[in-house]
Amino acid sequence: MSLTNISVDKKPEGTIFSPELAARFDKLVTLYPMKRSALIPMLLYAQDEIGYLSDAAIAEIAHRLQLTVLDVRNVLSYYSMLRTRPAGKFNVQVCTNISCMLRGGQELFEHCERQLGIGHKQTTPDGVFSLEEVECIGACSWAPAVQVNYDFHDNLTPETLDAILAEYRSKASQ
């Protein structure tokens, strides 16, 4: 028996993703001149479905692209939007970069900390919200801006943000 690492990582059985996502992945890898190009979109979509990039998700994506798990981890750990631990159902991302800072972004973030009772990269005990202080999200002329998951909310004040958070909270309980 060979005891050295000479084979690619073990093949996972079946898929851990929904049939729709699995089908999407099957298509994605055909779009590019090189399969590997599908890696970052796949990681994002997998995270969208599962909430984070679990070991199983990483293993399956690695297998689909014929990469090693290490290679996938090297890549995913580089990108700030990808995570290997669960976040809240709604990930509140408050921009505090210069344009938002000048319009009260920092205060908005601190307001969120107080309202949600959590800090940067933390999740509420009920799993509804997580909070993140993020770098510029490209909404500078409409600052201060917040992204909840992928949705933009701009020209915010603590009051308007409260209303938005309340809306998400009621969505979560539906």
């Binding site: 050295t4 690492n5 290679d71 580089y78």
Partner: peptide, 10 residues
Amino acid sequence: DVAALGIQQR
């Protein structure tokens, strides 16, 4: 040709 080491984070 073992590729057991990677670079992670940034």
